[in-house]
Design a protein around this nucleic acid. Structure first.
Length: 455
RNA sequence: UCCUGCAUAGCUCAGCGGUAGAGCGGGUGGCUGUUAACCACUAGGUCGUUGGUUCGAAUCCAACUGCAGGAGCCA
């Protein structure tokens, strides 16, 4: 019965009999014995195994090249060496899978670009093992956060007939033959209408919030944008809570509370992995994360943010002017130079925001908010939704949205309309922020980006 | 979609107009309670593709392809 290396390394007492299984990271031979570093992915650290040359199964040891899979039985004893508390004196070594010499992973550093080209093997490295353990932990923490607060987890559809206007270009889902000679009609398609991969579960999420009050979605999202940056992927995961009887204030509070809770969870449950990132990926990581958890987030209105930027005497490539969107450089100035902390910006001009956002009393702005963090930029985008039927209809007309497509969404205002609000949080961006890993391609197992869908 | 940069051994890179190099990894041998061990030997490359300039191109120029960074859009 195999024991995970993570629990062996935490032990206080030696063990007469223990069995481990994993992949060889490195082997160092001498005449009398071999040192084997074995990693099973349960934690960052490997366990050192001493295989004595007298072992009946010592012949197996020579087959244990870097990358080979093995199971080992033996005794857990205090290590004579300096760098580890425990080691296993092997009594039996069994090769499960050999690893030939063309194994691409070496003991030394590889570039992230190269590792992306072997995405099927990169979780065997220290860095990617740590990233994906943290990803798993954060996914768990998200469910815990919402379930503890009584939110209901809703599975919104992946294939959808509606687009969440303003969210981006969509992938078409079709069974029509692209090479057909005859012209084909939408009515002949699989669903009898055009369908797409979802760009957001928000609109469907709103329908459930208007029934179960507090809900969240957590699932994959697809954008066919030709974005070529380190922060965009064509397939990514998003968390979208939606709350009835809630205004923008409550929305911002939940977003801030959530970011703090998730980072706090990672700090307590992924200590070794975060220390590793702090040492090898981003020297200021732990300090920044502690800071985010303990200090209150800054909060400004869009109008105030524009004032700050205008008075900053900073020269920006893009103009700062009321009515224009904040550019990446402006957001970075606010989080990295001016406040040196996460900032929530709210009440944006209505003309630069989508149709579903609630108009403020000033008639110029909408109840929207973006939570900006240093390095990453926009981590959360959300709003209070327009619950007043007349104003929603006005917005739908202005955006040329048909009642045929959005009638069901409009119904929510017709039948028992309530104030409600929600936001979307990009899961990969959260992982980037927590790990310090700068490229979105390195925090999702098999990244999909324009021109690239290997594996 | 726009702007910029890069492409040389399995990997990381040096060479930047005159016969292709190092470290790591691989193989062989040695040595040692080792720690990305160490020592010796060894195999391994149409210098991304196509075209041009030149007596001569990995090196200069152009196009293409791929990758990366930034912008826009957004999460």
């Amino acid at each position: 019965m195999r024991t995970r290396i993570v629990s062996i390394l935490q032990r206080e007492e030696p063990l007469d009999e223990v069995e481990v299984a994993g992949w060889v990271r490195t082997r160092r031979d001498s005449k009398a014995f071999s040192f084997i570093e074995l990693n099973d992915g349960s934690c960052l650290r490997s366990i050192q195994i001493i295989a004595d040359a007298d072992l009946p199964t010592y012949g197996e040891v020579s087959r244990l090249a870097t990358g080979a899979a093995a199971s080992i039985k033996g005794k857990l004893v205090p290590s004579q060496g300096k760098n580890q508390k425990w080691e296993i004196l092997a009594s039996e070594v069994r090769v499960l899978g050999e690893c030939p010499e063309d194994y691409p992973l070496q003991k030394k550093g590889h570039s992230r670009e190269f590792l992306r080209s072997i995405a099927h093997l990169r979780p065997r490295t220290n860095l990617f093992g740590a990233v994906f353990r943290v990803r798993s932990r954060l996914a768990h923490a998200i469910h815990t956060f919402f379930q503890e607060r009584g939110f209901v987890y809703v599975h919104t559809p992946i294939i959808t007939g509606s687009d969440c206007e303003g969210a981006g270009e969509m992938f078409r889902v079709t069974t029509l033959d692209p090479h057909a000679a005859k012209r084909q009609h939408d009515a002949d398609d699989f669903f009898g209408r055009p369908t797409y991969l979802t760009v957001s579960g928000q609109l469907e999420g709103e329908t459930f919030a208007c029934a179960l009050a507090d809900i969240y979605t957590f699932g994959p999202t697809f954008r066919a944008e030709n974005s070529h940056t380190s922060r965009h992927a064509s397939e990514f995961w998003m968390i979208e809570p939606e709350m009835a009887f809630c205004d923008l204030q409550g929305d911002m509070e939940l977003a801030e509370e959530m970011v703090k809770a998730l980072i706090g969870d990672a700090l307590t449950h992924c200590e070794d992995d975060l220390k590793f990132f702090n040492q090898f990926v981003d020297k200021g990581l732990l300090e920044r994360l502690e800071h985010v958890v303990t200090k209150p987030f800054e909060r400004v209105t869009y109008t105030e943010a524009v004032e700050i930027l205008l008075q900053s005497k900073q020269s920006f490539e893009y103009p700062v002017e009321y009515g224009l969107n904040l550019q990446s450089e402006h957001e970075r100035f606010l989080t990295e130079t001016h406040f040196r902390a996460p900032v929530t910006v709210c009440d944006y001009p209505k003309d630069i925001k989508p149709f579903y956002m609630r108009r403020n009393d000033d008639e110029k702005t909408v109840a929207a908010m973006d939570l900006l963090v240093p390095e990453i930029g926009e981590l959360v985008g959300g709003s209070q939704r327009e619950e007043r039927i007349g104003l929603l209809e006005e917005n739908m007309r202005a955006h040329e949205l048909s009642m045929e497509d959005y009638g069901w969404y409009h119904d929510l205002r017709k039948y028992g309309s309530v104030p409600h609000a929600g936001f979307g949080l990009g899961f990969e961006r959260l992982i980037m922020f927590v790990t310090g890993v700068a490229n979105i391609r390195d925090v999702i197992p098999f990244p999909r980006t324009p021109g690239s869908a290997a594996f």
